[in-house]
Write a protein that binds this DNA or RNA. Structure first.
Lengths: 215, 215
DNA sequence: ATTCGCTTCAAACGAGCGTTTGAATTTCAA
DNA sequence: TTGAAATTCAAACGCTCGTTTGAAGCGAAT
């Protein structure tokens, strides 16, 4: 019991640096992706020593794994876009809600938005860490997209068609979230305030829903 | 005149390595993107010395610029999806043709496909070279997408709406081209032969044209 | 045959990366 | 207070990257 006590208390200050590292890593990876985010920048933002990453997490990949776990927990617990919530809506509203949730990072800079940005990075070129992480359970993002898409497709749609449509839908908000900074520059110069976000959701939902022909 | 002769003949062997470097760079950048493609791999494939890149092109960026020029020329000269050709078609056929052309790299491994792959990479995270390169004239890919989209949108559509829709359309084939190898792996396991390509074009065109609601 | 300019080459440079090292420091039970 | 374990720290290691260097090779004109 003195043993337990020792471990718990000793890890208290360590827990501080661990938490600081995870927080800093979340923002760095959201900004630059896994490959682009350097350990030096992370430890600098966390005001920790470079070696701390390897000491506490065994390496950069271990730290990233911890971030992914935190992201997964945040999505699961936070009731961020419940699957059942989606089913309760009409297909059209479900689609709109889906797009809106995943485009929120355009105007918000909170923790969940950073997690979404990380997933947006991974949707481009998944790191080995991420691939191994989702190997067991496919990420909620894909499951949600599939759920939304299935509402629209006929029951007898082939698995391939469902996959095509799911990827098609999942990819749409990712692009805008990932490249928000670039789209803010010329020649596009898209600044996203809340109104612009609503218009983007409207446009994407309109395109997806009614199709180009119907606009 | 003896001077000219000398220059011409002397540069003949140099022209060989230049061409080999550009060709190798095209395939390497198509595979790994600009940042991910290393000079060492390029010179290795071109069977040239590492220093050759700097000698002939002033650096990795100069070589890449040359590849981009070659790509632009290939698109312009090759009559690859002429704007006027698009206008001659119905909006629906123009959309289908657009998607088909840009998804061709899924089944073809020719020169134009490699250029398309490079543009797919740049659509994710543009290199500084690329940004500077397109600063003067926006790339044909975007102009084509805008042209297709305009056929569907009302005349009085706002510039923002047109931009949203254009990005939305341009992004769709890019994703599949860029991530073809990944999509071939589990859990997706999408192998693209010519039939699968046709089905993908059908699905995307259907989604875009009639919208999810109409499928 | 010699010279000169263009091209190639092996080697090294310097910077950034993730990681390792070993000593210094802190922490806390005894 | 003491001693051992946990944690922090500055420094360096080993690697890859794009680039530079200076000598060697080469072809054509003198």
């Amino acid at each position: 019991m003195s043993n337990l006590e020792q471990v718990r208390v000793a890890s208290r200050s360590a827990e501080t640096t661990r938490a600081a590292l995870i927080k800093a890593a979340t923002s760095v990876f959201a900004e630059y992706g896994y490959d682009g985010g350097s350990v030096r920048l992370i430890t600098q933002r966390a005001m920790a020593n470079q070696a701390a990453v390897n000491y506490h997490f065994g390496g950069k990949d271990g730290l990233y794994r911890e971030v992914l776990i935190a992201a997964t927990l945040a999505f699961e617990e936070n009731a961020f876009l419940d699957p059942e919530e989606l089913d309760a809506l009409s297909p059209e509203d479900a689609l709109r809600r889906y797009l809106h949730q995943f485009l929120l990072p355009l105007v918000k800079r909170d923790r969940v938005s950073r997690f979404l940005r990380i997933f947006a990075w991974e949707s481009v070129r998944p790191s080995e860490v991420f691939s191994a992480f989702i190997a067991n359970s496919p990420p909620r993002i894909f499951r949600l997209a599939e759920r939304v898409v299935r509402r629209f497709l006929p029951q007898d749609a082939s698995a391939e068609t469902v996959t095509f449509a799911m990827l098609w839908l999942a990819q749409q908000p990712m692009f805008f979230v990932r490249d928000a900074e670039r789209l803010a520059q010329p020649p596009f110069s898209l600044k996203f305030d809340e109104d612009a976000l609503e218009r983007l959701v409207d446009t994407l939902a309109g395109l997806s829903l009614r199709g180009l022909a119907g606009v």
